[in-house]
């Protein structure tokens, strides 16, 4: 994290910045780098934890907020809010509503008997995403250039334009969701069994499912509102954690949160620095990095595992 804060298109000396020896370094650290790194951590945590939660909720290893269309729904919600020039809190809340509607659609369409089948989930996600993007482009055509630019950046997924105030709001939503999911982690293990088994082991499965569902959607909403569509983090982080620690959610949920946070900080640091000394002298959106890493991993997963 300290490395991430000291690295960037303008290299700064950590010591100077904290003690205030260098005005410029101090300003960069506290007004640009710190909020950005914090936001990366929160968004990474939100995406990875909610990915793990969705995988349990749908009993399917391919679940991820981006692939399922939950992020798409959230993006539509936040784009609507941008279109109406609402405050960031409203962007988050509308994103949450969008994420919830997306999840309800998925439940409604893809619910077969017992387990959710991969084909139906993926198709629902693809179609829901397509629908959301059509609406987003529709809205995009009706707003000013500046707002259109903001919408474009939302779609790619980036962590720029961060203030500490916004970080606070995101932190509230994300940490709330994270805490709830961590507390529910033991019971989430039973979500992976059939409904009847969970019931006969003394779990009120419907209530549990609704709470997990809302917490995860809340996290995705806040993450998308703050940083746009950052894909695949929710997919592969929980899988990596599972490979190392096993399937128990008591470890999976918190470890996914932490690993997701660390991963996105690194990915964002990469995004900020990879092109800085080239002729382009620009910063990449972090969504580019996660998709470049995540999409091939997703294909490997799809190929290797017997997941249907």
């Amino acid at each position: 994290m300290i490395f991430a804060m000291s690295t960037g298109s303008e290299s700064i000396n950590m010591f100077d910045a904290i003690t205030g020896h260098s005005e410029k370094a101090h300003a960069i650290l506290f007004s640009a780098r710190l909020p950005r790194v914090l936001l990366a951590a929160l968004v990474g945590m939100a995406l990875a934890t909610s990915g793990g939660a969705f995988q349990a909720l749908l009993r399917n290893p391919l679940a991820d907020p981006f692939i399922l269309g939950v992020s798409g729904g959230a993006a539509l919600g936040s784009v609507l809010a941008v279109g109406f020039r609402l405050h960031f809190i409203w962007i988050s809340l509308l994103a949450f509503v969008g994420a919830t509607i997306a999840m309800l659609c998925i439940f409604w369409i893809a619910k077969g008997r017992g387990r959710f089948r991969s084909t139906e989930l993926l198709l629902t996600g693809v179609i829901f995403n397509a629908f959301c993007f059509a609406l987003i482009l529709f809205i995009n055509a009706m707003v000013t250039m500046e707002e259109a630019y903001q919408i474009l950046f939302l779609l790619i997924g980036n962590l720029e334009e961060t203030g500490l105030g916004m970080v606070g709001i995101v932190a509230f939503f994300v940490l709330t969701g994270f805490t709830i999911l961590t507390l529910l982690a033991r019971r989430m293990n039973l979500l992976l069994l059939s409904d009847n088994e969970a019931k006969s082991l003394g779990i009120n499965i419907d209530k549990l499912r609704i709470i997990v569902f809302c917490s995860a959607s809340l996290m995705v909403g806040a993450a998308v509102a703050a940083s746009g569509l950052i894909g695949f983090v929710g997919l592969f982080i929980p899988h990596i954690v599972r490979l190392i620690f096993g399937a128990d959610h008591r470890i999976l949920i918190p470890a996914s949160g932490l690993l997701g946070a660390a991963f996105l900080i690194l990915a964002d640091t990469g995004a900020r620095t990879v092109l800085m000394n080239t002729q382009y002298a620009t910063q990449l959106p972090v969504g580019v990095i996660t998709a470049l890493i995540g999409a091939p991993l997703f294909m490997i997963l799809l190929k290797r595992r017997n997941i249907m």
Binding site: N60, P61, R115, N189, L192, S194, G202, G246
Partner: peptide
């Protein structure tokens, strides 16, 4: 659940416990 336990016909989980 403390009084009645059920052994289901089969049980599957997408992630291995």
């Amino acid at each position: 659940a403390k009084r009645v336990a059920v052994v289901p016909q089969m049980s599957s989980s997408p992630f291995a416990f």
